[in-house]
């Protein structure tokens, strides 16, 4: 923990692709996995590098950006206000579906509840009223129904297929 007058503590994180990130402590503690690492290793030296073998650099950079902003919002008492919504909307606007999936996998591994809630909601909104084919492409899923099985399920939910968006 940082003491008054001392420099802020920095946490070192190493990604699967070997990149080293230096993150302010309050931001790194948003990651449940990092927090429990230090809870379990109370004696860990200040320059301990926490390995993150399931996360690569690109999504981690995105996650740090998100958590940093949200830590600041909370510190400023802005949590739940319009500027948070505005930030979230801007943050997600530029993200491709592929990036979004990488972010959610990484956020799930790092166990960041607030960000996970936000990402699942974003993905749900992107899947609303979309065709089955769109969803398969979105998740990169091979359809392993037999044509007969698929036909049977489609028939059962015929009403759900009216008026879906064009892909």
């Amino acid at each position: 923990m940082s003491k008054l007058g001392q420099a802020k503590r920095i946490i070192f994180l190493k990604t699967a692709d070997g990149q080293l990130f230096e993150v302010d402590e309050p931001v790194a503690m948003e990651f449940e996995i990092v927090k429990s690492f230090f809870d379990e290793n109370e004696d860990a030296a200040d320059d301990t590098v926490v390995p993150l073998p399931n996360v690569s650099a690109e999504p981690l950079a995105g996650i740090i950006e998100f958590c940093k902003a949200h830590v600041e919002f909370r510190a400023n008492g802005a949590a739940g206000k319009d500027e948070v919504k505005k930030f979230n909307a801007e943050y997600i606007k530029e993200k491709s579906n592929e990036q979004l999936k990488e972010l959610i996998l990484a956020a799930n591994y790092l166990n960041i509840k607030e960000m996970l809630d936000f990402l699942t909601e974003t993905i749900a909104n992107r899947l609303k009223n979309k065709s089955v084919e769109y969803v398969r492409a979105f998740f990169g899923i091979e359809n392993d129904f037999t044509p007969q099985e698929e036909e049977a399920v489609r028939k059962e939910y015929e009403w759900a297929f009216e008026g879906v968006d064009e892909d």
Partner: peptide, 29 residues
């Protein structure tokens, strides 16, 4: 993708859609 996509995330995503979407999603795989 699907193997590693956590089931609770998947369920939560489906939860946040609507009944019509959830019905359609059951055709995906």
């Amino acid at each position: 993708m699907f193997d590693i996509f956590p089931e609770e995330c998947m369920s939560q995503i489906i939860n946040l859609t609507a009944p019509r979407d959830a019905s359609r999603l059951s055709v995906v795989s």
